[in-house]
């Protein structure tokens, strides 16, 4: 990310984290990104407790058949403009669970995805980079309005 683009930040990003069947590996790295070593909140990014307050939907884990309708519902509840990040290999491709009878598919077969953060689990730095990428994308969307 260039310096110029950093100047254009207009608001802080609020993220709603949803787990659709992850093993917790990505989830604890997301919490690690919030805590003092990485401290994502100093960039104005924070996790919120409801999708209606969020700008970004962050999803971990392959989508289970039982979670398919729930993730769609949560996606619809996030107000526009919105963006979706998928953290971890399983959400991006199905990962090690690709053969399972209860997996509905990788996330992008169910809702549109903007940023993929690969890794099993990705490091907190990678997660922060992913959120920053999505920030740029949201700004672009704002600009086109």
């Amino acid at each position: 990310m260039t310096k110029e683009s950093l100047k254009t930040f207009k608001k802080s990003l609020w993220v709603f984290h949803m787990n659709t069947g992850s093993c917790n590996g990505c989830d604890i790295e997301i919490v690690a990104a919030l805590t003092p070593r990485y401290d994502i909140e100093r960039f104005g990014m924070m996790l919120v407790g409801t999708p209606r307050h969020a700008d970004v939907l962050l999803v971990t884990g392959p989508v289970m058949k039982n979670m398919e309708d729930k993730v769609k519902r949560v996606y619809e509840q996030v107000p526009d403009p919105k963006a979706v990040i998928v953290v971890g290999n399983c959400g991006a491709t199905g990962g090690v669970f690709h053969e399972s009878y209860s997996v509905a598919g990788p996330l992008d077969k169910i809702i549109p995805v903007d940023v993929y953060v690969p890794g099993c689990p990705p490091r907190p730095e990678a997660i922060i980079y992913g959120v920053a990428k999505v920030w740029l994308k949201l700004e672009e969307m704002e600009g086109k309005k």
Partner: peptide, 10 residues
């Protein structure tokens, strides 16, 4: 059981 991943079966 909401995210039963069928790991044993895989």
């Amino acid at each position: 059981g909401h995210v039963h991943r069928a790991i044993e079966w895989i």
